[in-house]
Write a protein that binds this DNA or RNA. Sequence first.
DNA 1: GATTGGCAGTCACGCGAACCGAGTGCTAAA
DNA 2: TTTAGCACTCGGTTCGCGTGACTGCCAATC
Lengths: 339, 339
Amino acid sequence: MVSERSLAVLRAIVQDYVASREPVGSKTIVERHHFGVSAATIRNDMAVLEEEELIAAPHTSSGRIPTDKGYRVFVDQLADVRPLTTAQRQAIETFLGESNDLDELLARTVRLVAQLTRQLAVVQYPTFQRARVRHVELVSLAPTRVLCILISDTGQVEQRLAELDQPADEETLGRLRNRLNEVAAGLTMTDAAAALSTETRTADRAHAEVLRTLAATLADQAKFTRSDRLVVAGAANLVRTEQDFAGNILGVIEAIEEQVVILKLFGEMTSEEGIAVRIGRENAAYGLGDTSVVSSSFEIPGRDVSRLGIVGPTRMDYSQSMAAVRAVARYLSRTLGEN
Amino acid sequence: MVSERSLAVLRAIVQDYVASREPVGSKTIVERHHFGVSAATIRNDMAVLEEEELIAAPHTSSGRIPTDKGYRVFVDQLADVRPLTTAQRQAIETFLGESNDLDELLARTVRLVAQLTRQLAVVQYPTFQRARVRHVELVSLAPTRVLCILISDTGQVEQRLAELDQPADEETLGRLRNRLNEVAAGLTMTDAAAALSTETRTADRAHAEVLRTLAATLADQAKFTRSDRLVVAGAANLVRTEQDFAGNILGVIEAIEEQVVILKLFGEMTSEEGIAVRIGRENAAYGLGDTSVVSSSFEIPGRDVSRLGIVGPTRMDYSQSMAAVRAVARYLSRTLGEN
DNA sequence: GATTGGCAGTCACGCGAACCGAGTGCTAAA
DNA sequence: TTTAGCACTCGGTTCGCGTGACTGCCAATC
């Protein structure tokens, strides 16, 4: 039904429409792409594509624009995810080359992706895995307030405040600190949490709250610490492409601020090949109309698999976006993994 | 020159223009506000105001809109910063009432301000003061990579990565850790940094890098740790009011992402009464046209004075913004200060 | 059967004219 | 000093028209 050439026409329509933001007609196609046929033939092909709901006309007697379904076919079958230019590759190297701190690395990454794709970029904070307790520290902020700090052997630091039932002086805290380190040090987060729970029963009331807090911290840590955080950059790109979101750009901005929405979306985007694309109405449930998301998983040594990607209008340059997202994700996973 | 009534007319113009986004004419004023005079009289007053460049006409035969200078006079002399409604006060209580973590408190604060003012809200991360070193921890990530973690007695935690010239095993690190704690614990950040610098000279090469890193961390800490961070909320409000920024909303968004710009701005806004307002072109140097900033200082016990505020179009409800910003800042400083 | 040229029909868009109305500035009177 | 009246200005809206970019269809052609 849908001939080979028809698909080529679809590809041409997507490319031209993304480039020009204007419905593309049969004549334009024969001019810009060198099909060996006349405009009338293209029109016939376009009729087929319209039949299949891959393209649509905004109004009678106008050019055609791709439908969500059309974009989907384009992304799955037609897009040539061309490798980055050497300039772009170098940008990745220099940008991400030497950064010590994870926070800074992610901040740089997200900026880089925003710059490469000219879209809003998002990175999910990767969680730690198999971390063990290295040290526990207690800091007295007020007579009944103790800050519990937990340091893991992977370098993760987590803090939590505990309210005591009764005041504890420095000396008591010192003893408690030593005891806690004896019990917890060297154990995994989950094990340590369990050990502390046991300890809770034998300890006196004043200490109980500290232990509970620490145990809770450890348990959280083991599960999803910081996985509920996003790093974002390139919001200006969102405004730049505002016209492409049919007026509901606010939904997108709210989704970014809420974070949860994006994280859920990321959660659903586990594709085998790493890179995944959600197009237009596929995201409607999240209040994201005319919005597409391109994301890829990546893995930094010592941490769980995480995701990075971009959020932009359905009318976007998928080839470029996918190439850039994939390249950066691979760089993070491979090159940094070697160290 | 500028009569009392003229100023009242200015106030009316500002209020009506902010409410309606339309140039306001003499007739509208006599209708909505009960001056005891006719439209013609108002026109005379408006002529005076225009003479003084407090208002301007977008084009001949249209109503008037306030100039930046007009807004300035309004803010300084005419705005009634009416106290919040009880509902709003309650919102503050319930929103900020019980939060342990500083990060969370600030996140809630900024959301609250965004909600109250319906503008983009910004909070500067307050720095620690008079902090002393409580504990130093070293974590080996790789043979030549050591993560240096610094815990202060105010509960601040800072981490930094050090690259060693030669590998160090666990035992060496353990000895170094003990030594560092002996030297640094109990000192202020600045003193500790100095002490470590002295130590650098006596230590062998492998340790030197760790010491240097720690010293640098401490020095940074003493100065402006985290003061270079902003917490932001309510970006949607920016887009909502987009028409009021004469097309250059991107400048504002970039300023927010850059953070430095806003921090500089905050730095210049030290006014005695706490609350300060920068209007329109006063910010032009920062690429913020048609943009106003309302901010107030606040102080959380144990930390240096910091700032929170809002960023919005020049055409904004200054009364409401100032009231909300002031109320939240006071709440943070007073109510939380009592604990 | 696929392709092509030709031709009529449709519709968005841009432009100018006419019109409307809000609002001013000025002047003379109260 | 205030007021009423009046001429004038000018942005915004509406309407009609012409233009151009398309499509869809049909008959001829390869």
